[in-house]
Amino acid sequence: MASRARRVVPQTDQHGHTGVVETDTATWSPARVAELYEIGNTWLHRAHPLTKLAAVLPLSVAGFAGDTVLVPAIILAAAVLTLVVSRLGIIALKSLRLMAPMTFALVVIHGIVRPYDSEPLVAWGPISVNAGGLALAGTTAARIAVFVIAVTAAMATVHPKIFATALIQRGVSHKLAYAYLAGAELIPEMRLRATQILEAQQSRGFDTKGSLPRRLRTLFALLKPLLVSSLIGVEMRTLALESRGFSLPGRRTAAVAVRERGRLLQRSLLLASIPLLVLAVIW
């Protein structure tokens, strides 16, 4: 967790581009850093957060066009190439790493395990590899990978705080944006606390490797302090938010301004999904 402790400060330059800079990490809580976010100043970092999010829909829908691996594979290759050229190869790697277990399961279930009437491509004892099954596994994996890489590229290049601000500026409830942002920030914090509780309970002799009933008892012992403290903390947080006027009506001004741009592009991208969806259904 400590290796991810990078301080990120959202900044808006003289052209109105919003990005983030890395500064001293010594005093910054690792709990405040989103796990997926990659610091940088590429064109993808500078693009409006909602433009990137809007692009996910047509790309993902286009991935489902055709019943072969061709279309999703072309989109995937283009996306990986674009990311590598933009020095964001790490995002492509992250996406492909996320896809690895699913791709493995698809290949095993559809390509090897599932019986087919057609002749196998390769047969080795009871194990046989089927070409049709492999093609289905490849097509499905490529389709899901297009969605994964589009979401990862969109979200790994925007700090959650800037994303939440962009949503509020577009009229999304500040309460909903708070819940999203607080949830994103709470994930690493809760993980840290969970690890601390796990280590503390292990030092008290709780068995994490025993029989199933024993491990279930340990699970309860692990969850109880975390959940009770979280629920008690809810009251304190509620009071803190109320004292800051959380439930007061009216528009909020954000500490970080995201320049309003790309509305037409965002609408065009969303509209482009409709013909692509029709194409995906009929093709």
Binding site: A179, A182, S247
Partner: peptide, 12 residues
Amino acid sequence: TTAWVLIPVAIG
């Protein structure tokens, strides 16, 4: 407000 605070806790 309590419900909104509870949501991120539930996510965690």
